[in-house]
């Protein structure tokens, strides 16, 4: 279910129902340079799941992922508390891909950095379908464009 308030893409805050898988934190920035290619990042996440740093299956609690020009936010389903807040300027990239288990679910790998760009983290979420993953990418891309134009 996608609910976006506001009309123009600039102040859209689109919300998507997702599940949280886990995070790989404190990656050295130059280590993460090796994770630029999508397949490298997918293999890295796969390896992290194999050696237990990331679960294979997300928690079963539905959460709300909010994407806007301010950034990406993860809130509980009742939106009473915000669990993750990723300011847009610290979001490096987002990668969406099929989880390969045949259920059509997609994984979202959000790479963020810190203000000094010394370390990176990979936040992994799961959404219900590739269509939903595509819309999340569209809104994030529009948010980057909007920040770029209004950033100067």
């Amino acid at each position: 279910s996608t609910k976006s308030s506001g009309n123009s893409a600039s102040d859209t805050c689109a919300e998507f129902r997702v599940k949280y898988v886990g995070v790989i934190e404190k990656l050295q920035f130059d280590m993460s340079r090796t994770l630029q290619e999508p397949l490298d990042l997918i293999n890295y996440i796969d390896a992290a799941q194999q050696d237990g740093r990331l679960p294979f299956v997300p928690g079963d609690e539905d959460m709300i992922l909010g994407v806007s020009k301010y950034g990406v936010k993860l809130a509980s389903a009742d939106q009473c508390d915000v669990l993750h807040r990723h300011p847009l300027y610290l979001v490096v990239r987002m990668l969406c891909y099929d989880d390969g288990l045949g259920s059509g679910k997609n994984l979202l790998a959000l790479k963020t950095t810190d203000t000094k760009q010394e370390e990176c983290s990979i936040w992994v979420y799961q959404c219900g379908s590739s269509e939903q993953a595509q819309s999340i990418c569209k809104v994030l891309s529009a948010s980057f464009d909007c920040a770029l134009t209004s950033g100067k």
Partner: peptide, 17 residues
């Protein structure tokens, strides 16, 4: 096994990083 679409959205601020 990841045959289907892989979509990447990059923040222009970090292009190439």
């Amino acid at each position: 096994i990841y045959k289907s679409a892989v979509t990447t959205v990059v923040n222009p601020k970090y292009e190439g990083k």
